[in-house]
Design a protein around this nucleic acid. Sequence first.
DNA 1: CCAGAAGTTCTAGCGTTGCTAGCTGCAAGA
DNA 2: TCTTGCAGCTAGCAACGCTAGAACTTCTGG
Lengths: 204, 204
Amino acid sequence: MSSGARFGSVSIQNRRERERAERHQLIIDAARELAEAEGWEAVTTRRLAEKVEYSQPVLYSHFKGKDAIVRAVAIQGCGELARLLRQARPKQSESRLRAAAEAYLEFAEKRPALYAAIFVLEVDLPWGTDEIPQELRDAFGELVAAVQPVAGERDLETLTEVFWSTLHGIATLTHGKRLRPSHHEARLDLALGALSGTEQEHRL
Amino acid sequence: MSSGARFGSVSIQNRRERERAERHQLIIDAARELAEAEGWEAVTTRRLAEKVEYSQPVLYSHFKGKDAIVRAVAIQGCGELARLLRQARPKQSESRLRAAAEAYLEFAEKRPALYAAIFVLEVDLPWGTDEIPQELRDAFGELVAAVQPVAGERDLETLTEVFWSTLHGIATLTHGKRLRPSHHEARLDLALGALSGTEQEHRL
DNA sequence: CCAGAAGTTCTAGCGTTGCTAGCTGCAAGA
DNA sequence: TCTTGCAGCTAGCAACGCTAGAACTTCTGG
């Protein structure tokens, strides 16, 4: 039965592709886990190969090189950040801006390796020129939505860039132990107060 | 003449120490130049040794390891940043805050390798725990002085940390091509306007 | 059912990295 | 002048990212 044989062949091919996709994801997850457990400097192709129980060259049949693996982790991490920001709804009298800021900074602090992959490591995510991945667009979109209520006459996108810059600065300087941990809340109050154009001292 | 011989010996020892100090600085300068010309990933112990015309082990008689060399470059770069900030006096009706911000961002953009050594690379400069080098203290002090006029009732040091975070965020995100270059001025206007608690649209 | 083709995975190794053990040769002191 | 000490070099280690080519598995045609 030639058509049956052909169908079977296609099915097998499908299974192959599925298994290949699973292994692709397995590599990404292993890289993320290793980075989160021991930092990106511990993520070597050898250790990664050992963790996924394949030899090194298998990694290169899925990714062009180590950078491409980090990039894949970063993009998926970006999706996770976007999801967290979307879920960050203000509680009580808290402003949406503050809810977003706290979610962003919590992500940066709790998942430093993931945050570094996205925003710190120089892996050249296609931000500017190329097709920007949807995950990146989503994450920025959430920030825009959080800034919108306080923008007033000011240009929304530009103000969002300033908001993001402040958050990113706080996140990276905190991670590098450059800021006084005891004043984290006070810094956020000042930053949010300034950006929302009010002078009030307490939570917005 | 025994005292003469002794004096000569001390003199020779002085010369030795002086030459050693010069070579120490030669290594630091070579590392900085190499990094500024080709980026930190091009700074290898072999290339550095070749540039200073000594063998690799000589580097290790001056510094504990490659990280220590980067640290030394970073600390001296910090002194340079502090000097630039001190010299950045507002022109015309420009605020001191703006003058400092522009000097800071110009340093980050014009000397990216130096900026990275100080603030981005994870070389663990002794910010928090240890004795903080005077250069670091000076640089932060200049920022405090620039923020002081607009602080008002707000805590000066905390507000300076926010100011610094915003500058650092803008600097690193700009370097990573994450922000729209065309809106650089507008971002600075918004950021400075927000921090100084005014709503005015034009230059402060 | 079997031999050859096609595709997949592994072994082994290249060039480079940061770093160091140990030899060599020069200069200072007795 | 002989010895001692130390400064600097040669050579090499382990680990890195990455790859060529062998070896194995799986599918196909006779």
